[in-house]
Simulated assay, not measured.
Amino acid sequence: MSVVALSLGCSRGVRPDSAIAGTKPLTGKVYSNEAGEQVTIIPLEPADAKKALVEFNGTKSELDGKVVVASVDRDRGTGYWTQWRGRSQRFVTVHDRGGYEDLILSPVGATGYTHLKPDTGRTAALKVEKVFERYQEAEADGELKPFLPFDRKFWVTQAEKELGATVAEANTACGTKLSATIAWDSIPDPVLNELSIPSYCAGPLESLQKLCGRSEEAKRTIQQKVQTVECRVEAAPALKLEAQKVIWSVKSGETLQPEATTTFFTENL
């Protein structure tokens, strides 16, 4: 009787076009860590909907205080995918580590990730109907609407931030003051939406860093002959060296392999 009452109470008022229409919440779980980050996951039934509500708190990101609906997959752990700024993002993945759960959280705008574990106390106090209602309110108030369309400016800023971290690592390893640029005029919205630009553009920087770890001679050569790395999206992957500028071209689904990139620098610097 109580389960039926909970179901009816939560379902009342759900809009027909809602992402959670026709679903009801099951028992949820709260995860936390010592840094104060909290993630609440509430599966929704029917199970074949493959949906869950995810609530974020204490993440120091724009996700804080928000409840989002996520699509659930079970490939390499249980992943929770959310449409955010026009892209499908996996902010949360839960792994079974041989008897204990490990939640990996990668908030929007973060360059890394953190680990959370089940929080027994908070889970016991969790009221899933309140979270369910909170999501309904967010839909009704339009709270999540600004985060749904594709946001080129946001993803450009994020890509440059992530690539900047790779540049810093290369400069530390090589004792250089390299700069890296992304030729944004070569990257239309569909490509930016499809590719992880920082990952694609990191190739030459990672190879230079690897070479600097091999010898002092390699360090000195790179210090003298490389000042800038430019990343572009072109019809075919390629690597060129013009003056002291490395031009790195990638294509969707294709890039030069690390061995080939390292060999290029070995032979051309």
Rank of each mutant, 00 (worst) to 15 (best):
V3G: 10
V4N: 12
A5E: 14
A5L: 11
S7Y: 09
C10P: 00
C10L: 04
P16V: 03
S18W: 05
T23K: 02
T27S: 09
K29V: 10
N33K: 00
N33E: 01
Q38D: 03
T40M: 04
T40L: 04
I41S: 01
P43L: 02
L44Y: 07
L44K: 02
P46L: 08
A47C: 03
A49M: 08
N57C: 10
T59A: 08
S61Q: 04
K66S: 12
V69W: 09
A70V: 03
G77F: 04
R85S: 08
Q89T: 08
R90F: 06
R90I: 00
V92T: 08
V94D: 04
H95S: 11
G99H: 09
G99L: 01
D102Q: 12
L105G: 00
V108K: 06
V108A: 13
A110R: 05
A110L: 01
L116Q: 02
T123S: 01
E129Q: 07
E129H: 02
K130G: 01
Y135H: 09
Y135M: 01
A140W: 01
D141M: 07
L144C: 05
P146S: 05
L148W: 13
P149R: 11
D151V: 02
F154E: 06
F154P: 04
W155F: 10
V156W: 12
Q158W: 14
K161L: 15
A165C: 07
E169N: 13
N171P: 01
T172K: 15
A173C: 05
G175C: 06
S179V: 13
T181N: 15
T181W: 15
W184Q: 13
S186Y: 15
P188N: 14
L192S: 12
S196E: 14
A202D: 03
L205G: 03
S207P: 00
C212A: 04
R214L: 13
A218N: 05
A218S: 00
K219I: 00
R220S: 11
T221L: 13
K225L: 06
E234W: 13
E234H: 14
A235Q: 14
A235S: 14
P237D: 01
A238T: 00
K240R: 14
K240S: 13
Q244V: 06
Q244D: 11
I247E: 13
W248N: 03
V250I: 10
S252D: 10
G253C: 04
A260P: 03
T262D: 05
F264E: 06
